[in-house]
């Protein structure tokens, strides 16, 4: 079971708050409970090929792509999230997760702020999922019940215990160190399954942060037959591009909600299309649609 390391500290703070008779101000930062599940298992996802993925009509949801929602749990000391399984192809499999909604950087240059991004991302609608994956046999969690990891203990011939990390989803940061992407940013990794063709793997989408605005995290996930660098996607001009990006799994906000997209988020798909059409288009979208997920000119 994965627990938050700051559980003891939180309990201490709560006790000290009670002791001093103060209101626990941290309550204001806790996500609210909703109908969205805290932990659930997606089941097996079919590994989708490049041709099929490239041929998907953007207005439909391919069956090999899962769209879902995650919410808060009653116990703030536990990690929530979703799991899915995929069968090893015997070569490289790319696992991708795209959490709601999207992130972009604001242009900080004063010389060119009219051509580059000018409007800040609104982060209250963003969530964050951390991706890990490995052989299903090594997964320590219980799919659908509790989130675990891919660690195990190895006893060497002298009887000394060593902790083994079986997570094969290695993502690296700017300096090459193991890292996860930040809020709303797509996470992906290549899994080399050449030693385990036909064997089941588990991918874990661990909830790192829920969106502040509604405590419901919409996301999309898939397992791709090939390397992440070859993931196909179309920009808004219809050009076929390759590589993991926000645009590989479109419309996670619209497709994840069984009741359809909420009115207050109706602008999400349009903004994502603007984002996927290339640099500068977010700026254009925000300039033309003030308030729809963007800051207004007055707020700048």
């Amino acid at each position: 079971m994965r627990t938050h390391g700051n559980l003891a500290l939180g309990a201490l703070l709560a006790l000290s708050g009670l002791a001093s008779g103060c209101t626990n101000v941290r309550d204001g930062f806790r996500p609210v409970l909703t109908d969205a599940p805290f932990v659930y298992d997606i089941g097996e996802l079919r590994v989708i090929g490049a041709e099929e993925l490239a041929g998907v009509d953007p207005s439909t949801v391919p069956d090999a792509v899962h769209y879902g929602q995650l919410g808060a749990g009653e116990n703030a000391g536990l990690y929530g999230g979703a799991t899915f399984q995929f069968r090893a192809t015997g070569s490289s499999v790319c696992v991708v997760v795209d959490p709601e909604a999207m992130f972009w950087n604001k242009e900080i240059s004063t010389q060119s702020n009219t051509v580059q991004y000018k409007f800040e991302d609104i982060f209250e609608d963003d969530g964050d999922l951390d991706l890990s994956a490995g052989l299903a046999a090594y997964y320590t969690g219980s799919p659908g019940s509790e989130i675990g990891d891919f660690s195990a203990v190895y006893d060497d011939p002298a009887g000394v215990e060593h902790e083994l990390a079986f997570n094969e989803c290695i993502q690296t940061g700017y300096f090459g160190d193991p890292a996860h992407a930040g809020r709303a940013t797509v996470e992906y990794c290549d899994i080399d399954t050449s030693l385990h063709s036909g064997v089941m793997y588990t991918a874990v989408l661990e909830t790192f942060a829920l969106p502040i605005d509604d405590s419901i995290l919409n996301f999309g996930a898939l397992a791709f037959d090939g390397r992440c660098a070859d993931l196909p996607w179309y920009d808004s001009n219809g050009a076929l591009l390759a590589g993991a990006s926000e645009c590989v799994i479109p419309n996670e906000v619209e497709y994840a909600d069984a009741n359809g997209i909420p009115e207050e988020k109706a602008w999400f798909p349009e903004l994502e299309r603007a984002y996927c059409s290339g640099v500068g288009k977010v700026n254009t979208f925000c300039k033309d649609n003030p308030g729809a997920g963007c800051q207004s000119e007055e707020e700048l």
């Binding site: 190895y154 060593h162 083994l164 990390a165 094969e168």
Partner: peptide, 22 residues
């Protein structure tokens, strides 16, 4: 912890499980 004389063409330290292919 020990010596493995089987896995390689020379004496090599005992090793833990192979996790990744290469």
């Amino acid at each position: 912890s020990g010596i493995d004389t089987v896995s390689f063409g020379y004496p090599h330290p005992s090793m833990g499980p192979i996790v990744t292919a290469d």
